[in-house]
Amino acid sequence: MADYRKPIPQPTPETQPFWDGTKAGELRLQRCDACSNVIFPPRPFCPRCASRSVSWFKATGKGKLWSYVINHRPAPGFEQEAPYAIAVVKLDEGPHMMTNIVDCPQTPEALQLDMAMEVVFQPVSETISLPKFRPAGA
């Protein structure tokens, strides 16, 4: 991890529980206590009904491949992996989440939209683990 050169998230007070979750091997989302809206990215209120009463819960970590590109011009730190997919997974709970796809060839043939995905956690620093996704059952 010491030579990890890619961008590393810097949590804020509002997002810290999310990153504590990924560190602990859980994908945590928020749900509005008033209207049940599932909220991501994290914030201390509901953007649908403005309630300030929202609670963290452990998500299933399951979803489907919603869309992606296969990037041939690597961002700094990603040179070894290009071309690599930058994907969006639609979580079973509703929200979209940007991610990378692991345990799968980074090709249009292998990456079929709507395929079932499940979360895995990749430690990138002492405190941060990134949620990534692989084909379910891979």
């Binding site: 590393i8 810097q10 940007m98």
Partner: peptide, 29 residues
């Protein structure tokens, strides 16, 4: 983006390298 911004936390770590690799993401859908 700054590492503590929402983009910095929830998009940049996945290797998005500017508009060509981000603006294009919805299109396969």
């Amino acid at each position: 983006p700054a590492a503590a911004s929402l983009q910095g936390q929830f998009e940049a770590p996945y290797g998005a390298s500017g508009p060509p690799s981000m603006f294009t993401i919805p299109v396969l859908r």
